[in-house]
Amino acid sequence: MQGNTSILNLPKDEFVHPGNRACSGCGLSIAYRIGLKALGRETILVVPPSCLTVLQGLYPIASTKLPCVNVTFASTAAAATGVLGALRAMNRKGVQVAAWAGDGGTGDIGIQALSGAAERGDDFIYICYDNEAYMNTGVQRSGTTPHGALTTTTPIKGKPQGKKDVPAVMAAHNIPYVASCSAACPLDLFDKIQKAKTISGTKYIHIHTPCPSGWGFDPRYTVKMGKLAVESGLVDLYEIENGCFRLTGTSKSLLAGKKMKDIEPYFRSQGRFKRLSNEDISQLRRTVTNKWETYRKTYEA
């Protein structure tokens, strides 16, 4: 993957004001801060109800230095389409549209509008920050909540179902760019957003976003937790460009032979997984192993 931006090359401009209402150690804050550096000043944001709404602030103060329209929960992608329609109709050039929504607002209630927009090929970047539950409303389970996770609506037995693979759903729409990222790997995220900016059509970027409040770990480990997910082969950094899949960053290194960490420390260090049994972990380990075997057979390092 081209790019490979280093810390010293990152734009210095900040697009988010401090003193906002995000939790201490919020993974979204990192992704949002670096993501907006990648998007740049000529951007209109579209945001549904989510943690980001809270981060963005209560009337009349906004923490984001970019224009943003707040929309209803199910309509993020449709609203992004609407902004684009207006820009075209009014011949306003040089402005891009980026939607930022949570996992629920993307893969559950928002999937219909997103699918419609992808089918139309509407030219915006859709960024899903996946903290794996409806965190803003108090940690209720969502489609992307992983198997076994305790949430306030799966409080005793943990989620019985598995994690919905939203990037795969988006890839099935044959859009030109789908990427999987992590808030703990912001330089990889930066490069992917920058690449998405150069592509016409619907671009989808999924960011695995550790959430200390909802996942049950000390906020100081947000980045460490996110990296651990990637280093254990659970969360993969990849891009699918015109249907062509390739791993990036640490995931690419794992494919090339870098030693993969075991998954157990990731699960055992989060309060939400305390109901996972050893059998559950073994099952998950097998799933990850199988996935990587398939990767090795299918893709070159």
């Binding site: 988010v16 201490s24 150690g25 804050s29 990192i30 801060r33 912001p186 330089l187 947000t222």
Partner: peptide, 28 residues
């Protein structure tokens, strides 16, 4: 530290400094 600070309260300077007005003390 500047890269990972969720709040953006660490300056990208030599040396980096922390804005304690808004630092939430996450420890990242």
């Amino acid at each position: 530290c500047w890269l990972y600070c969720p709040e953006g309260v660490i300056s990208r300077e030599v040396p980096p400094t922390i804005d304690y007005e808004y630092c939430k003390g996450c420890g990242i």
